[in-house]
């Protein structure tokens, strides 16, 4: 069974003047369980919106998003929240760690809305991302590369079925970018999680077994490209 199946997904935002602006129109998309996909596209082209829809943060105007056969678009918000907490991990470009929490607490925070806090697993994950000696550090006391590794550990805290990574190397230098993307892939492999990365960086995309162009997925971009 496919991990993720998307059909006729579209999303518009209200425009300041005139009709709504459509940013996304994806006729079909599919991802297998435990697979890895990288989507390449320009900045500001609606990739984040796509990830937000897949994560259940946003609701589409129309279309279906099946995660292991369950249609997210038909679920009420609180159920989508529960599903996101238990089945989806999210890695952000700006890491989005909570500043008042230590590394260990940030990872445990990822668990607290899902499978429940498991401190030994949180420690184990931080050991895996080579931060065993930084457990009680706060994000501001870490380098950007280390912060991204905490974010990766947090995304995997609940053993998610799917990890979504939005420009995960956007704030990193080339050396750290490579290391970060390798780490995300390695951990997702170990945990058996599917991984979908969106990035404008071809070097990042090139390291994935399956690569897609956002323009080929999103008909809105295709139309713009044609015009």
């Amino acid at each position: 069974m496919a991990l993720l199946e998307i059909q006729n997904l579209s999303k518009s935002y209200p425009a300041p003047v005139g009709p709504d602006t459509q940013v996304l129109d994806v006729p079909a998309f599919e991802m297998d369980t435990g697979s890895r996909v990288a989507i390449h596209g320009e900045s500001g082209s609606g990739k984040t919106t796509f990830l937000h829809l897949v994560a259940g943060i946003l609701r589409p105007d129309r279309g279906t998003i099946l995660l292991e056969g369950q249609d997210l678009t038909q679920l009420p918000e609180s159920n989508r929240d529960r599903l996101r907490a238990s089945s989806i991990g999210y890695v952000f470009q700006t890491f989005n760690l909570l500043q008042g929490f230590t590394c260990l607490e940030n990872v445990m925070l990822g668990m607290s809305f899902g499978s429940g806090v498991n401190e030994s697993r949180a420690r184990e994950l931080l050991e895996k991302v080579d931060l065993a000696d930084r457990l009680s550090y706060r994000p501001s006391q870490l380098s950007v590369g280390q912060q991204q590794r905490v974010a990766v550990a947090r995304a995997l805290a609940n053993k998610p079925k799917l990890v979504l990574a939005d420009e995960p190397t956007g704030n990193l230098d080339p050396k750290n970018s490579r290391a970060a993307i390798d780490l995300i892939q390695q951990l997702c492999d170990e945990e058996g999680s599917g991984l979908m990365v969106v990035s404008h960086d071809l070097k990042v995309v090139d390291s994935f077994p399956k690569q897609l162009s956002w323009a080929s997925l999103n008909r809105v971009i295709s139309k713009e490209t044609r015009t």
């Binding site: 994560a55 943060i57 609180s78 929240d81 996101r84 989005n96 909570l98 809305f113 947090r154």
Partner: peptide, 16 residues
Amino acid sequence: RREIAILRSLGARRVT
């Protein structure tokens, strides 16, 4: 607001 959005993205419900 950003922290709240992060918590929501981690699966925190509005009521939480």
